[in-house]
Design a protein around this nucleic acid. Sequence first.
DNA 1: TGAATACGTTATGTATACAATAACGGGGAG
DNA 2: CTCCCCGTTATTGTATACATAACGTATTCA
Lengths: 250, 250
Amino acid sequence: MAEREVDRSVSQTVKAQLALRDQILSGALRPGERISELQAVETTGASRTPVRMALVRLEEEGLLEAIPSGGFMVKAFSERDISDSIELRGTLEGLAARFAAERGVSARELEPLKECLAAIDELLRQVPISIEAFSSYVTLNARFHALLTELSRSPPLIRQIDRASALPFASPSGFVMAQSALPEAQQILIIGQEHHRVVIDAIENREGARAEAVMREHARLAVRNLRLALRNRTHLDLLPALALIKTAAD
Amino acid sequence: MAEREVDRSVSQTVKAQLALRDQILSGALRPGERISELQAVETTGASRTPVRMALVRLEEEGLLEAIPSGGFMVKAFSERDISDSIELRGTLEGLAARFAAERGVSARELEPLKECLAAIDELLRQVPISIEAFSSYVTLNARFHALLTELSRSPPLIRQIDRASALPFASPSGFVMAQSALPEAQQILIIGQEHHRVVIDAIENREGARAEAVMREHARLAVRNLRLALRNRTHLDLLPALALIKTAAD
DNA sequence: TGAATACGTTATGTATACAATAACGGGGAG
DNA sequence: CTCCCCGTTATTGTATACATAACGTATTCA
């Protein structure tokens, strides 16, 4: 293979990582399936060295699992794994909110959060919400959670929350998409927005315990909704957990 | 270099990872210092490919930081980073204790925990505690925390706790060693043991909130003690955080 | 007929060669 | 004297060749 198309705008390692992640999350690679390096080389266009780096990184992200005899396989998640991951993330975000409240946050730092809040309010005014508005909601919600995390000013915590969000179903967008499958979707979004409002208020008033409690409740709500969504499996196309859920056995 | 001493009992990647971690934690590589791959190849005896894999893994562990222009440097931690990491870990362990309590644990599963507890009781009966006994304590305490984590039966949570413990100062042994520098060390160990006792009791009685609360208090105690230990910098030889603390200029 | 072993094939682990880029230093010009 | 540009050097990023271990298959012997 003499001529190889090389995209020099990003490193081969990053390119391979993105391509492989796509394949996993799109379901092209099934949970439990072994990933062949050679095959990955062909589909990603990178050579074996960057592919291997990407595989190691994806393992650390939690999308892959090392096989003892060598190589990697796509990790499979049970429904409980997924709900635990969401609750875990909520617990971490709760700690972030507590840190923000206890350590104090200036009005200027809170401003972007409030803008997010207002923008979401605007979107939710539509009944029923349009597809485009819902898409904007997903983006704004993710932004809100990211900003909130930043407010903790704690690099170790921020790092850990990022790691916990690497699993698609545990990310803020994952929450929302899972919830969108439910008939009560709009009502759920409104309750979530109420949580957002409370956490900002708690941080402003330096009520650490209240800020933490509401974020945990926020996650528990998401867990309940995910369970519901998985029960009546309707409109689950958007659910990013789907491709990773253990199929049979276990 | 024709003849290279190759230890075939473990993979070169693992060997390099262990060797580099040692170098970092022993302080041979200073925080902020760039790690040269070539140099790492010489000191570890592995070739560049496994060295690079090890570097990626150590970055994910949190011991290294990627340099935007390429390569890795030893991560530097502030005192607050360290205390946050401990509190973070305590929060995670709190969640694990809650899961264990809420999901129920059989008497048989609790048995090893109780054995740990009894063994530590035995050690603490010595006043003052001997060096050997203290060393045993460190091991037993780490075992206790690991067993408790397992009781959650939540792979995602266990995984996250393991990651949070990768930083030496955030591991159970790290807690203890930091505390050992204080004059009130023995009293502190006794209080910690009381926490251990309470969490088992709470899990047995399926009191999730109480189990969670005591583990968080356990960590907060560790944070307070770490602060004290860092204030009066006496006998800090054992403190595994030392090699990683930012020196000057935050 | 079944099981066990040996062999061949395939995939991963490792090493190294090559390419590209970023850092550093020197020299020249303003 | 200082600043900028260019060339050199060192270091990382990438590709590939080679070694080794695992798996499957076929054949043979009990």
